[in-house]
Design a protein around this nucleic acid. Structure first.
Length: 806
DNA sequence: GCTTTACCACTCTTC
DNA sequence: GTGGTAAAGC
């Protein structure tokens, strides 16, 4: 990474005259002048505007290391907020590497993790216990659903999604049920009912000793505001606060930062602080062009108005890109320049143009996926490692087609996010057992396991138990222990008592006071699963899927063991916290030799040698839902921009003319953003206008009338594709589309023991005839390398490929 | 109280 | 194509 900034007229020379930094060379080596400035600047506030790939992580880690190395701060005085746990771990490692030792006591974590840490310490100040549960969005939804039912709020037209969405939004703006009630319009029965629902929801969380995701931030702010002496503790402790991805902070997070950087009330100097008794020094890093979380309350104004918010703030611009080729950057610059209302910023690089961006238009999502798979195979042959290749898409549902083709092509891949392991019902069940042990107040968790596996404890019994607990003013666990007082049938009573006994036994095992200390999480879970017969029940089931579920539970057991290995002192609560706060990227394994599939949102902050941007179609990117939201299309453009700028060397952009959505095939139009990429930067293998199929088969009828009119944005100047076509040609008529879709998806087969050897001739339903060159792999993973006469070389998973030996 | 079946609505992005 | 719910039957 050489310093080539002399050629850039925009730079201002930075004087590093302060003797403090004289022996600091090592930390400044290889940094360009702006990066150096961002590392060495000292003051109350610093905004680093870091374009994509401009080395901001490097700057942040060097800045932290420099603070510690120069004895300007103890590690414990530093709080660094990152966007994901993975980024936090990486930053910790890099700082440790720079300093030559692990910096103990430094807080490097996400907003949520930092807040959980604070809340666990301080919970008892405001009516929670330190073993509170964290509700994920599924839990919140379940709770709201129940409340809507109880209050019969569905009569007012409330849906669960609406209510959870509104509550989340309000919490991100630091409103709670009371403050909302104060300005609610009670003459509107719907609004009045919403107040009731919000109240009931908040009360239920409090009663359950639980916080939802949004609470983690907002309640920490409330805590600081209500207990100044608590706030002061943290204001004194953290003298340097650094926040990454500042453009994606919401109001609650902004307020939290404000609280933390406020000068402590009593003005005594503390230790090594470089700013007397004032507020902590704040460094934020961000790029408003990469703001893609407005939908969850991120407020772009936080970064745009930073200088006004923090007077005396210094701003450093990082525009030199060290990641991508010029072609990729030019495309990114061209696209993002269509967003008005932004500070002009142009990424540039010294590495040269690189290859052109490759474009492809498939007839269907499957055709597109096949293109991706084929290109990945070529990249691989060219020596690129699978883990340097990523495929991005707008919505998780797009993974289906990609996965089908990838499996068939024997490409090793990994889907990040999506239907996450921890969201599966059986995992949720097992986790609910653990939660019930850790937090006996959590009614939601208890309710989930009360009759899972079936114990004959139905809704009627549950209600009785609940009202008994309320009547007596006791917790659920106590109520269960006293089940015999309820006058229920002997079988039900015994079942309740047995479950209570099991939970008590597990609680004793997880008790830190226990002789020998708290038992490892895996032991607690093993006991619960064993004695509840949960896994036994699954294995005995006739439903074939239950076998897979049982295996998932076993997998969870393995996860707990792994957790215990990595965290010998890790408690049950620690485990539950960790699981609640994992992000999709967090289980990205850099060393796995697989292609990564993820949404554009998940891709933020990552980089790959080769990137495939798929589904670049109207209604998908920009997504249909974004059209109605203010600022929606601009945010979608930023999303596209984020995707483009993830690529180092190769960028592939693809779309399909029809897409399976809803179980049926719908017409798809090229995205308006495609036209924004200068034509000379792209090489279309098959542009949206080209009407011939890739295998060279006959042209498909693409001249049917349009399904809907395409109201392109701006432009309107006609074709930009470097083919002879008109823009936005409509797709094939429905019958042909379905045929195509069926031909690819319709065949699930099992060739189990088909023996193939090099030289065999085979026929494939899609690719026609070909010759087997080589067979690799074993058992069900045997792969045939086939040269097809018309479709070229392919790799096929023998077990499931639609092939026959000739 | 449990199980099966049929119909429904929804599907955008996430800590 | 899925997942969740409601009703009917055991």
């Amino acid at each position: 990474m050489s310093d080539t900034t002399e050629s850039n007229p925009r730079i201002t020379p930075v004087v590093v005259g302060d003797s403090r930094f004289d022996d600091d060379d090592e930390l400044l080596d290889g940094l360009n002048p702006e990066q150096r400035e961002a590392v060495v600047h000292r003051g109350p506030a610093l905004l680093i505007v870091a374009g994509a790939g401009s080395g901001k992580t490097r700057v942040l880690t060097h800045r932290i290391a420099s603070l510690i190395r120069n004895n300007e701060a103890w590690p414990s005085q530093i709080l660094a907020i990152t966007f994901t746990n993975k980024a936090a771990a990486e930053m910790r490692e890099r700082v440790g590497h720079l300093l030559g030792q692990v910096a103990e006591g430094m807080w490097i974590s996400t907003f949520h993790s930092a807040c959980v840490r604070i809340l666990r310490r301080e919970a008892e100040n405001f009516g929670f216990t330190k073993s509170f549960t964290i509700y994920d969005s599924q839990d919140s939804r379940a709770l709201v659903k129940r409340i809507i039912k109880d209050l019969q709020a569905d009569a007012f037209g409330f849906t669960v999604a609406q209510v959870t969405g509104k509550i989340s939004k309000l919490k991100n703006e630091l409103s709670d049920a009371d403050s909302y009630a104060r300005q609610a319009n009670f003459s509107d029965p719907q609004d009045a009912m919403f107040v009731e629902v919000f109240r009931a929801y908040s009360r239920a969380l409090r009663d359950a000793n639980a916080f939802d995701f949004d609470d983690l931030i907002s309640q920490t702010v409330f805590l600081f505001r209500a207990f100044p002496q608590v706030a002061e503790k943290y204001q004194r402790r953290f003298r340097h606060i650094l926040v990454d991805e500042y453009q994606d902070t919401n109001h609650a997070q902004y307020a939290l930062i404000r609280e933390l950087t406020r000068p402590p009330e009593s003005n005594e100097l503390s230790g090594l602080s470089s700013f007397g008794g004032g507020g902590a020094s704040l460094t934020v890093v961000g790029d408003s062009d990469q703001s893609i979380y407005a939908f969850r309350g991120a407020d772009i104004r936080n970064i745009v108005e930073f200088e006004r918010d923090f007077p005396g703030a210094r701003v450093v611009l990082l525009e030199q890109n060290y990641r991508s080729t010029q072609n990729i950057l030019s495309a990114a610059n061209a696209v993002i320049s269509n967003n008005f209302d932004r500070k002009d910023k142009k990424l540039w690089t010294a590495v040269g143009d690189g290859e052109k961006i490759v474009g492809f238009t498939g007839y269907s999502g499957h055709d597109e996926a096949q293109f991706v798979a084929d290109e990945i195979a070529k990249l691989r042959e060219g020596g690129m490692a699978y883990n340097q290749i990523a495929v991005f898409y707008r919505t998780n549902s797009q993974t289906r087609a990609l996965e089908e083709i990838f499996i068939r092509s024997a490409l090793p891949y990994r889907v990040l996010g999506g239907t996450k392991f921890y969201e599966r019902a059986e995992i949720k069940d097992a986790m609910a057992y653990l939660t019930s042990v850790a937090n006996p107040f959590d009614a939601l968790a208890l309710r989930r396991i009360l009759n899972t596996p079936k114990r004959g404890i139905g809704p009627a019994t549950e209600t009785q138990l609940a009202s008994f607990a309320e009547r007596e003013g006791i917790g659920y666990r106590d109520a269960m222990r006293r089940a015999s007082e309820l006058g229920l049938g002997p079988k039900v009573t015994a079942a309740i008592l047995q479950l209570a006994g099991l939970l008590d036994e597990a609680t004793a095992l997880a008790d830190p006071e226990r002789p020998g200390g708290e038992a490892p999480v895996s032991e607690v879970l093993a006991l619960l699963m064993e004695k509840s017969n949960y896994v036994t029940m699954l294995r005995a089931s006739r439903d074939p899927q239950d076998e897979a579920r049982a295996e998932n539970v076993e997998e969870l057991l393995a996860v707990t063991k792994e957790f215990n290995r990595n965290n010998p002192d890790g408690t049950l609560i620690d485990f539950l916290t960790e699981v609640s706060l994992v992000a999709a990227v967090d289980d990205l394994d850099d060393s796995s030799g697989t292609v990564s599939l993820m949404t554009l949102h998940t891709a933020k902050g990552l980089e790959y040698d080769a990137v495939f941007l798929t589904g670049v179609e109207e209604d998908l990117l920009p997504h249909r839902m974004s059209a109605s939201e203010p600022g929606g299309p601009a945010e979608e453009r930023r999303l596209f921009y984020v995707g483009i700028t993830r690529a180092r060397k190769r960028l592939f952009i693809s779309l399909a003319m029809t897409r399976a959505q809803f179980g049926e095939t719908a017409v798809a139009m090229p995205s308006r953003y495609l036209q924004e990429i200068p034509a000379e930067l792209m090489d279309w293998i098959q542009s949206p206008g080209m009407a011939t199929s890739r295998g060279g088969t006959e042209p498909r009828a693409l001249n049917a009338s349009r399904g809907r009119s395409y109201g392109g944005s701006g432009g309107g100047s006609g074709s930009r594709w470097n083919s002879d076509s008109t823009f936005g040609l409509p797709p094939a008529p429905p019958r042909q589309k379905t045929e195509w879709a069926n031909r690819v998806t319709g065949q699930v087969r099992d060739n189990g023991d088909l023996e193939l050897v090099p030289g065999d001739r085979i026929t494939h339903t899609d690719f026609g005839e070909g010759r087997v060159n080589q067979v690799t792999g074993e058992g069900s993973k045997r792969v045939a390398h086939v040269s097809f006469e018309s479709a070229g070389p392919k790799k096929l998973l023998i077990k499931i490929a639609p092939i026959e030996k000739l």
